[in-house]
């Protein structure tokens, strides 16, 4: 077939498109394309490189700075949470907002008009990167613990807490995606993502009438037991419930609103 032969030419001019032989774009292919979009620009590669380097650097610093008994596997993992929690959501934000700032949404949505499928593919792609970053942190932490960790450095392992910790990382990425979807603007989404939780914490700690409600309404307050209990006691049922309500308010609701906005948006 020559390069520009329209497929209908064999049947002669026809006013209908024969789409019977064309399957829909499979979801896995969309995820593959979205994964590729994360690293196929220089900006994307810099961000990924920064995440890997900063994670490795902060563990190395901890390795030399911490006292022997503190060099446990759990602590190594815990220390990697901070930079990853800051940078991975930016990756999620960019995956959504760059489609608007670079106006590629026009191409993306004309190749796949089912916008929900595209959003889902972006979400899965961002979570895959989050999972990969977590696995990378596990490997580096294991190496650090084996090389120079405390005696019994792996003793404080508790699967449930690792799962919670991973869930927290992934939720943070979802939060980034949610703000990206709602604002569709890179600087606004990044600023909101970093400033809003701080503002919320300040309000809830300063206004005494709100202080009792803080664990139920303020994301930072509700997530604190996850960090403080890392390697220690588990969470109470009430703390799980508080994680649930704050996740709903700060992540789920914005995500749904952003999703609706993209479905309705006029793509220019």
């Amino acid at each position: 077939m020559s390069t520009t032969t329209p497929s209908s030419s064999a049947a002669g001019p026809s006013m209908t498109l024969d789409v019977s032989g064309t399957p829909k774009v499979p979801f896995t292919r969309l995820v593959g394309v979205e994964l590729r979009k994360i690293y196929d620009t220089r900006a994307g590669r810099w961000l990924l490189g920064a995440i890997v380097l900063i994670t490795a650097a902060i563990m190395t610093i901890f390795f030399f700075a911490a006292d022997g008994p503190d060099r446990t596997f759990g602590n190594f993992i815990g220390i990697s949470a901070t930079p990853q929690g800051f940078l991975l959501p930016v990756l999620g934000i960019l995956l959504v907002t760059s489609e608007w700032s670079q106006r590629t949404a026009m191409v993306t949505f004309s190749l796949e008009p089912a916008r929900t499928k595209v959003i889902a593919a972006k979400t899965v792609a961002a979570l895959i990167f989050g999972l990969a970053a977590f696995v990378a942190a596990l490997v580096v932490a294991a190496v650090c613990t084996v090389l120079g960790g405390a005696e019994g450095g792996f003793d404080d392992l508790e699967t449930k807490l690792f799962a919670l910790f991973l869930a927290l990382q992934l939720l943070t990425i979802l939060q980034g995606l949610a703000y990206g979807l709602i604002l569709l603007n890179t600087p606004a989404a990044i600023v909101t993502f970093f400033v809003l939780p701080i503002a919320s914490s300040i309000v809830f700690s300063l206004v005494s009438a709100l202080r009792d409600l803080a664990p139920w309404l303020d994301l930072g307050t509700a997530q604190e037991p996850l960090f403080s209990s890392f390697g220690g006691a588990g969470l109470t049922g009430e703390q799980y419930a508080q994680l649930g309500t704050t996740t709903l308010i700060w992540i789920v609701v914005p995500f749904v609103l952003g999703w609706i906005r993209v479905l309705r948006a006029e793509v220019k």
Binding site: S7, S98, S110
Partner: peptide
């Protein structure tokens, strides 16, 4: 297009070639 709403065309890129704005591509790609 060909009797179908654009949303109902499976893998629409295989049936309809679209160029709306040549500049609407990522500057870094």
């Amino acid at each position: 297009i060909g009797g179908l709403d654009y949303h109902d065309i499976p893998n629409p890129g295989r049936h309809v070639g679209v160029l709306l704005d040549a500049g609407a591509q990522h500057a870094g790609r």
